[in-house]
Amino acid sequence: MAEELIQVDLKGKEGAIRVRSKVSLWLKRGIPLLILAILALLPVFQIVEGTLNYWIHMLMYVFLYVIMSSSWNIIGGFAGYVSLGHNVFFALGAYFAGMLFLATRISPFISAPVAGLLAMGFGLLFGLIALRTRGSTFIISTIALVLLMAELFDNWKLTGGTNGLALPLIDLPGQFAKIPYYYYLLVVMVLCVVASYFIKHSKFGLALRAISQDETKAEVAGIPTRKYKILAFGLSGLFIGVAGAVWGSYLTYLRPSIFLTVSLGTSIVLNTILGGKGTIAGPVVGTAIMIAVNEFVVAKLGATELNIVVTGLILIFVLLFFPEGIVGSLKARNKLPSFLDWD
């Protein structure tokens, strides 16, 4: 009798869940797609009205940082290896495409994927050395990489030293100048987030997550941890390299003081951790919030010095009290709105 009751109860619940899951599936897929559609249509308004330059620029910032954070997530979030030096890929992509353009006039739009592959190759090579270590030593080696690269690029004649390289403006009227970059970055961003989803749910991604839980056990379980870590590190450079090529051409000047600062490498990490490392939506959410906060701080307080104070304080607060980030913490409490649950 009691068993029957429980079964009936279960059936009722299941039914309710099924109905609710249909609605939530709609919301889950619908809201992100709607946002994406708006983003895709925004430049049309820019072409017609011409008043959205600021928004286009800000959104491009978001796209760029989402690409970087989402990529970082592959090694930092899934595998648990925190790298503070991922902007090196960004710099490599930018300098490669920029120098190639100056030498051969090949558009960065065309060379960007090659820049991505180059960055990935570099990632594999660096990973071969740095991933011999774990934990703190690994993190240190990634900071040292940024500092080393900054020194090299500062002193290298070929890259223009501290003055950097100047690239020509794109040959379009000011009103439209941003639009090709905008779409390029938008597409790369979508590809990058989708790729991160597929990586996370592949066998490879599962192995990476096992490594982040307990590397020794993962190894005992037969996962070729070293190979996978290096591959993950390389992969995480791919899209950042592409974005670097595009962004360099957009900025029209390449300088170590823009691309190779430790704080840029840190903000990639901050955005991901704020959003929720290891989650798919986390880097997107974290980036959007951080860019909004930075804009607000600079606009209201006007001082860039205070900007890094705020960045630092947010990072400390999140790390100590919400190490799982926004998406991770909400999910753990079962309060994550379904449209942000992309896993």
Partner: peptide, 23 residues
């Protein structure tokens, strides 16, 4: 996760100190 967290927290602290000193 103490090791990972502290590396980042101390680095964030460095940024805070830098910003305050610059200010």
């Amino acid at each position: 996760r103490f090791a990972d967290i502290t590396v980042l927290v101390t680095f964030a602290t460095a940024l805070v100190i830098e910003g305050i000193l610059a200010f």
